[in-house]
């Protein structure tokens, strides 16, 4: 097995373990009340955190131009969502504006 395949195998094992262990142990059981309430509160925070993480530059190789054009696209998406448009429409609008800005300004 070459190095690349060791990496694939190790990543697969890590990913499977993180996804499966707790659902396998806790699956189908009622969580203790305090834990259920805590996880209920975690939902909005986790979703909002995901949004910020996706917008956060993943490294120095990501330029400010790319981040700003992504933010501009997301802003358009937010406006569309606020106008009660569907998620698909808002996603398409965000990608389109971001792509157009990159095409025109780069």
């Amino acid at each position: 097995m070459t190095g690349v395949w060791w990496v694939v195998a190790a990543l697969a094992l890590t990913s499977v373990a993180l996804r499966v262990v707790l659902p396998l142990v806790l699956g189908g059981r009622e969580l203790p009340g305090w834990l259920g309430a805590a996880l209920l509160n975690a939902g909005p925070a986790l979703l909002a955190g995901l949004v910020v993480m996706l917008l956060w530059p993943s490294g120095p190789q990501v330029s400010a131009f790319r981040t700003l054009t992504a933010l501009a696209g997301v802003s358009v998406g937010v406006v569309l969502l606020a106008a009660k448009r569907s998620i698909l429409t808002a996603m398409a609008g965000a990608a389109l504006v971001s792509a157009l800005l990159r095409l025109l300004l780069s």
Binding site: L55, R66, L71, G77, L81, A99, R102, L103
Partner: peptide
Amino acid sequence: ARFGLDAAYPVFFLGLLRSQLTSGRA
């Protein structure tokens, strides 16, 4: 990056978050 997908993903999660933001607590 020229396809602008990095702007579409956050909007997907914002769209799902929208339905949960029904109270000051949320």
